[in-house]
Design a protein around this nucleic acid. Structure first.
Lengths: 223, 223
DNA sequence: TCGGACCCTAGGGGATTCCCCTACAGATCA
DNA sequence: TGATCTGTAGGGGAATCCCCTAGGGTCCGA
């Protein structure tokens, strides 16, 4: 890896986009484009061969999409940093991409300046994320934490309580649940109270949200 | 494609498995193994080059899994038939694989005889599916039909009715829904009646099942 | 242009369900 | 051996649900 010049491989299935990216990047004296790939497969092959500092990779390519190519390069232990270009701000793909080994994430319509900055940062070994992406990341991480916390709460319930929780979330009434489990509707009431005390679920919507997040409602729906 | 001899390409990342498959297939005088690939990528390359009658492909390979390779070959308009080998009976992958262009589906621990039969059938252009797979296929198709029917039903509702349906499924009570939509709880009652008449949802569990199947509860849960 | 068809709105009233409190027996555990 | 957890259940008032009826608006074809 040269200390002065940053070598870049472009991967995008649209020639015009490659052309545009190249034009923008060539305005920076410290960046040079050493190759262009037309799909993910080519990107992987060329990255392994040319060993660029940075691979600027489109997300949506045929033959092999950018996410798959990223994972692939990671698996092949390619030293190149990967900067993902995405058409729109699809923040939900961010975390999987970062896990797959991407170092940066940028929307295509970002300012030219931003692209150059991103390439430089990524080449330095830093991560580059748009502001929105950072927010999405924080949100996603929080969501995961939250989800883990909910799973822990769910695990802290007794078997009976878990059953009642699931059945309530599935929409069954107290008496219905009692009938299904062959216990009194009054007993079901007691479990509701316990669940409320233990993990704070008070009303039906709370139950449904909780169950949806933990995927408790997907089973048995396979029909 | 020779009318007498069936040419086969094996794709599996375990040499022992390839060896075993080869041994089994070579016992059939009308089958000859013309190549072995160690991963999906190689399988695609070799299939395009060698044009075997049948590609016997493992599902789980690194570099490129069998499903991806199958899609890839389909996209490249490869004339070879593809017979998927799977470790266990993971029937849920069946339909996507068939859509991706696979002609057959076989568990690895199937009898030797079965493998030979499958290769022959697939080479002839027929589809080969294990009994269980056929059942899973029927089930999946039925499920899809059913799902499509439910989607149609959902679409047949008015905007208001759809809102009420979603909110009921989410666990909200009539009065709650009224407050959220700024209408009387009594009006909500009326919508319940309509939904019942129109698409037959009578009790809360019906609502929840319906909504889960159509993915109506996943939104807004992103937190 | 008039009568359906469809949609949004809403009330009355009985049946059902929910919520909160109390209660007890077996198990487990400190 | 008392404390905590779990499974069980009843009483009673408040909240909700279910079914029926009903008016006003729009749109469209006869």
């Amino acid at each position: 890896m040269d200390n002065d010049i940053i070598t870049v491989l472009l991967a995008d299935d649209h020639a015009v986009v490659r052309y545009g990216l190249k034009a923008v990047l060539q305005t920076a004296p410290d960046i040079t484009v050493i190759g262009e790939a037309r799909n993910g497969r080519e990107a992987v092959d060329m990255a392994m061969r040319l060993k660029p500092d940075v691979v600027v990779m489109d997300l949506s390519m045929d033959v092999m999409d950018g996410a798959t190519a990223t994972r692939e390069l990671q698996r092949l232990e390619c030293a190149s940093r990967i900067l993902i270009l995405t058409m729109h701000a699809e923040d939900e793909y961010l975390v999987p991409l970062l896990e797959a080994g991407a170092s940066g994430y940028l929307v295509k319509n970002a300012a030219d300046r931003e692209l150059v900055d991103a390439v430089r940062m990524v080449a330095r070994g830093d991560q580059y994320l748009r502001l929105g992406a950072v927010r999405a990341l924080a949100k996603e991480l929080k969501k995961r934490e939250h989800r883990a916390a909910e799973q822990t709460q769910y695990d802290s319930l007794s078997d009976r309580e878990r059953s009642i929780l699931r059945l309530i979330a599935a929409g069954y009434s107290g008496p219905d649940i009692g009938a299904q489990l062959s216990i009194s509707a009054k007993t079901v009431d007691t479990y509701k109270q316990r669940i409320h005390e233990k993990i704070g679920l008070a009303h039906r919507p709370d139950y449904v949200r909780f169950a949806v997040r933990l995927g408790l409602l997907d089973e048995g729906v396979s029909m």
